[in-house]
Write a protein that binds this DNA or RNA. Sequence first.
DNA 1: TGGTTTGATGGTAGCGCTACCAATCATGGG
DNA 2: CCCATGATTGGTAGCGCTACCATCAAACCA
Lengths: 362, 362
Amino acid sequence: MFKSSRYCLNSLGAHLIIKKPTIDDVAALSSVGRTTVSRVLNGGQNVRDTVRERVLAAVKTLDYKVNLQARSLASGSNKVIALIYSSNLESEPNSYYHSGLELGALRACTDSGYQLQTHAINQDSADYYDKILRIADKSRFDGLIISPPFCDDIKLLNALIEKDCPFVCISAGNIAAKSAHSIGIDEEMAGYEIAKYLLRLGHKSFGYILGLQGHISAQQRYSGYVRAIEEVGIEVKDQILERGNFTFKSGIEIAQNILTRPNPPSALIFANDDMAAGALFSAHKLGIKVPQDLSVVGFDDTPVSEIVWPPLTTVHQPLKAIGQQSVQILLKKMSGINGVEIPLQTIVPFRLQIRESTSGVQ
Amino acid sequence: MFKSSRYCLNSLGAHLIIKKPTIDDVAALSSVGRTTVSRVLNGGQNVRDTVRERVLAAVKTLDYKVNLQARSLASGSNKVIALIYSSNLESEPNSYYHSGLELGALRACTDSGYQLQTHAINQDSADYYDKILRIADKSRFDGLIISPPFCDDIKLLNALIEKDCPFVCISAGNIAAKSAHSIGIDEEMAGYEIAKYLLRLGHKSFGYILGLQGHISAQQRYSGYVRAIEEVGIEVKDQILERGNFTFKSGIEIAQNILTRPNPPSALIFANDDMAAGALFSAHKLGIKVPQDLSVVGFDDTPVSEIVWPPLTTVHQPLKAIGQQSVQILLKKMSGINGVEIPLQTIVPFRLQIRESTSGVQ
DNA sequence: TGGTTTGATGGTAGCGCTACCAATCATGGG
DNA sequence: CCCATGATTGGTAGCGCTACCATCAAACCA
């Protein structure tokens, strides 16, 4: 709390310092030992009902609140989980992608009496590795959740293991997923499915827009796309391939560039929704009708895909659920008596979310 | 940190517990007293340079990190600032509005060595008052930043004052702004200006869509709009007035409703960008051309207004700067030897951000 | 020169809590 | 009836740090 004491006037008009009640005050008021109060507070066993009630009454009377600082200092555990995500705070707002994860994680934390602490790190900064380790050293948390692209930095993961810091990866790439606990969708299959869907609509020429380098899971989506179109005999090397940085702006620019070329593709696949939204923007500017003249798909199914016009066909991944489960896995891992059965990799289902930005070609 | 100790093997192969270094370890290694180390760590005066260097070297050697829990327990100050904002986490993602504030606040906190703690409270919940006070009691922070609509709950503010909890309001309504420190734009004037702008374009029939009740600042924007149109002799009571809940969805529904009436207005003014984005969506659905057939304006200039088509004319308010300054004011207030000169109300400038969702009427 | 200020340092008492162990009491089998 | 057993309870030693006071040497003043 902001202050440990408060000033009042006593009956004589003199200043009297009223300190916030401590566990000892509760103990004194309820005529029990300090330990017993602690037991009651921590839901411990072996307390007579009458005593428990007496303590609880005193807590209420005094409006007592535990001092979490003191508790974690004494117990060595902080009941805090940290979530690290990448964001370029200078240029972009927090993306809906991270909001979704955070929300889910927050809910799970609240349910388990944990606090969630979030840290935004700029992945472009050269020293992000150091920054993250510094956070791991300085801020006091019990476990860590890491999202792309940091969760694909094997060196970082090893450093955390070395430090004995429990962590869980969200949407880890295939390499990280082999050595660390992770949760996410089957990215390759998701890429495959969305490509299949476009092929079914009759599309034969594609533009695929990758996200930032280092996001392995996004890279795997691309692999799925490649598999799908090769399966039907379309040459990958004849298709357009570009790289954006996941932002709306980069989507605008890349789409503008692609759509003003001589023979633009009939379908654009973006590694996330924000970039796809940018493509819709460019299409509007250029007078290209979506979906009549151009199909556009995104990835993630964040709220952006519903806000834009036309609403975006995309791959839905249950971000809140992923955030939520990541905390649960972490908690299990932390409590775990060494080799409890926690599968290294947890796969959650995705689904195609078909909206109005895609249609068949003539 | 996650764990206070770490296990290693010593040369005999036996388990050896390596504890994280404490201030005493540093003191021992550098052959000074614990107090001196503390002084060096806290940038204190009266330490010889040679000693300071010795201590710093020991800190480096041991890779020592202060235990913030212990520090705040001992010092009574936590170096934490909390930000409370309203959000219905169930149905909406974190809005860009709050992301902007948070970002600014975070930056200011980081600059001053503080941590930022955010709490999302559902304003619909009947017990939000209790929830906030519980947060104020339980979580240990030094100061509080409150955004609408909570900052307009005078009862809540009084309770906080009673608790001696330092706080700053963001975009407080006119009543709250009289008794508490606050920062924001001149809301009434902003409403006036945007209405003036539409009047200048020749609009004569309006639909105004309010936000949730209790957001006094948003209400003041409406007052400004009223002043502007009355000034030119237009009857307010002939204009459409609706109330939304700040969400994209409510914007869709309300616009749908308004635009399918016999004589729809030529301009729609929304209390925030998300609702205005919803109106664009509905207009698309109904085949109404924006801005040719309908002008739409939002409020706040969040990233949403750039993502939608057409990009939204809106009132820009410097959310990051507001978040940042709110922390600075709070810090000043907390450090303040009673009556230091901090103006109760801080007004930051807004500006009309004209984009493509508005045009003149024939 | 003696007394006083000043700078630099260390010792120690907590901050409020939990972990651990000892103490107490009621119960029940032999 | 005695002692092992288990349920309850309290005492106390820290957790790692800062605040406060005591100490001591060096520097200063007249």
